[in-house]
Design a protein around this nucleic acid. Structure first.
Lengths: 188, 188
DNA sequence: TTTTTTAATGAACAACTGTATGATAAAATT
DNA sequence: AATTTTATCATACAGTTGTTCATTAAAAAA
């Protein structure tokens, strides 16, 4: 009967809370283990029994956001899109709104110093969503795996451009832009 | 009359050489400043007067490869492609061969721990090449900036997938794959 | 060649890293 | 409630980091 030790839960919560506080002040790559432990009032050795480095702690936060991405996809629609229903599938439509909602988080994930791993993880989640959606509603004669990979790339490319332009567009505008681009590409 | 001090050149060369040696043994993110300086027989303080961190030293190597990417684009064709001349522009055709040539380098650049910054730098170079090519040979009624950004994303997405599959395809196969994908996308 | 400039050096510094220890106390098990 | 398990703790260690400073020596300028 393996029960989760309450001490572990408390320690992890303290560490996460400390990291969240620090992230509002400084960049992820400039936050030290010592700093987190001081703020969390947790022994430094204890940090190392759970996480090897600050990034591993951040990844727990990452997983939460990814779960939310998936959840928001399963939720009934509630955004202000209208025209794109036929042109974009639900997973695509929602990704921009999701990112808009967690802008602070994605500023970290797409910052210059962030490890490429976050990009890969995000890619995997997005591809999976697109792939599931295609198999449910799409043409089943095509290789959904390859196509979802290509589409995930296209969308993430657009998201990166969005980030580089400091998220100045709204999520709705990004959806429109994607539709325009697809129109241009598919009708040369 | 600002002349480049010979001592600086020698120091930088030693440091670079040491980094290159270490990169053959271990990952970039596990190489310490101390280690490089020990091997290069350069004082650690001297390292810090030129570079703030190991990544900055690596970026000099990065610039070299980017220069080569540009050079190889200006060179006359010498690869074994035939069919794609009408379907892909020269910059696109060459990128896969270039990456194949410097596979070792790109394994580092696309590794999970590599900072996203390398991706951004590579993107910028690629986009510039595509944009130049479009303005020379392409339709000048369209927004080449936006289009080159989209194309650079599509190609880099494919390259990332290539890396994740351990570069098992040849550069020529990657060109063919891109042509196939574009065909599929533009003829739905 | 001599003088001037300045890059490289060695040494020292506080702070952080990653790891290991036995002691303590909180939780789970009986 | 008593016992067992184990997470956390304080402490210590050698090694790395990033910085500073006076000294040395190599290069550039005169």
């Amino acid at each position: 009967m393996k029960q989760l030790d309450l001490r572990i839960i408390k320690t992890k919560e303290s560490l996460k809370e400390a990291l969240m506080l620090l992230l509002k002040e400084k960049a992820l790559n400039s936050i030290s283990v010592t700093e987190i432990c001081r703020l969390a009032k947790v022994n430094r050795g204890t940090f190392y029994t759970h996480y090897g480095q600050v990034e591993n702690l951040f990844e727990e936060y990452f997983k939460e956001i990814m779960q939310n991405l998936k959840d928001s996809y399963l939720e009934p629609y509630k955004y202000a899109w209208t025209i794109h229903t036929q042109e974009l599938n639900p997973a695509t439509i929602r990704i921009f709104h999701h990112i808009e909602k967690y802008e602070e988080f994605y500023r970290i994930v797409f910052s210059k110093t962030a490890p490429l791993n976050y990009y890969y993880l995000l890619f995997d989640h997005l591809q999976q969503l697109l792939d599931e959606d295609m198999r449910l509603h799409g043409n089943d004669k095509i290789d959904t795996g390859m196509l979802s990979a290509y589409q995930a790339n296209a969308i993430l490319g657009l998201v990166i451009e969005w980030h580089r332009q400091d998220f100045k567009q709204t999520a709705e505008e990004m959806n429109k832009l994607l539709v325009e681009l697809l129109k241009y590409i598919t009708r040369p």
